[in-house]
C-alpha cells in the first residue's frame, strides 16, 4: 500500500521543512519560559517531539530511523527525570523541604533567569517529555514501517 511507495510528495516535504524549525523553536521557547508565561515543560516538550512526526511525514521511516538513535533518546529521558529529582532534592540540601524553590532572589522578576530552581525543574520536565514523547512516536512509527525497511 502507500507504505511501500517512495515518499516524493513535494508539498508535504516542503511543509515539513518549513514547520520543523517552527515547532522546535516554539517548543523550546515554551519550555524555557514555562515559569513566566502559559505553558511549561510538558506542553513545550510535546511540541518539540512533534517535529519527529513532521520529519516522518516528509521523509518517511528510513530517514527518521537514520536520524534518531532510540537507545540514546531513552537514556536522555531518564536523565531528564534524574535532573528533575536532583533539583527537587536541592530544596532539602538547602535546609528546607523537597521541591522547595531555592535561589529565588537572583535576577529581576520577568527575566528568563529569575525564579530559582523552579525554572530548571520545568526545563527538566520539558527535556523528559520531549525525549519521552519523541521515543513513543518513534516506537509507533517503527511499528507502522514495512518490514523491508527495518
Amino acid at each position: 500500500m502507500s507504505n511501500n511507495r517512495k515518499v516524493k510528495d513535494v508539498i508535504v516535504k516542503t511543509a515539513a521543512d518549513l514547520f520543523t524549525p517552527i515547532a522546535l523553536v516554539l517548543g523550546f521557547y515554551i519550555i524555557l519560559h514555562g515559569h513566566l508565561s502559559p505553558g511549561g515543560g510538558f506542553q513545550g516538550g510535546v511540541l518539540v517531539a512533534s517535529a519527529v512526526i513532521l520529519i516522518y511525514l516528509g521523509y518517511g521511516y528510513s530517514e527518521v530511523s537514520k536520524r534518531f538513535n532510540m537507545e540514546f533518546i531513552k537514556k536522555n529521558e531518564a536523565l531528564g527525570a534524574i535532573l528533575f529529582t536532583v533539583f527537587g532534592l536541592a530544596g532539602i540540601l538547602y535546609g528546607s523541604v523537597f521541591f522547595t524553590n531555592v535561589f529565588v532572589g537572583i535576577g529581576n522578576v520577568g527575566d528568563l533567569i529569575s525564579s530559582g530552581t523552579i525554572m530548571f525543574m520545568n526545563d527538566s520536565v520539558g527535556y523528559k517529555v520531549l525525549t519521552g514523547v519523541g521515543f513513543l512516536i518513534l516506537l509507533m512509527i517503527g511499528l507502522l514501517a514495512p518490514d523491508n525497511e527495518n
Binding site: 537514556k75 529521558e77 531518564a78 527525570a81 534524574i82 529529582t85 527537587g88 532534592l89 532539602i92
Partner: peptide
C-alpha cells in the same frame, strides 16, 4: 525527610538503572 527520601530513592534508582 525520611518518607520523601524513601520514595525518591526508589524512583531515582529506577532512572539510574535506565542510564
Amino acid at each position: 525527610h525520611y518518607p520523601i527520601l524513601s520514595i525518591v530513592t526508589l524512583f531515582l534508582g529506577a532512572f539510574l538503572t535506565v542510564i
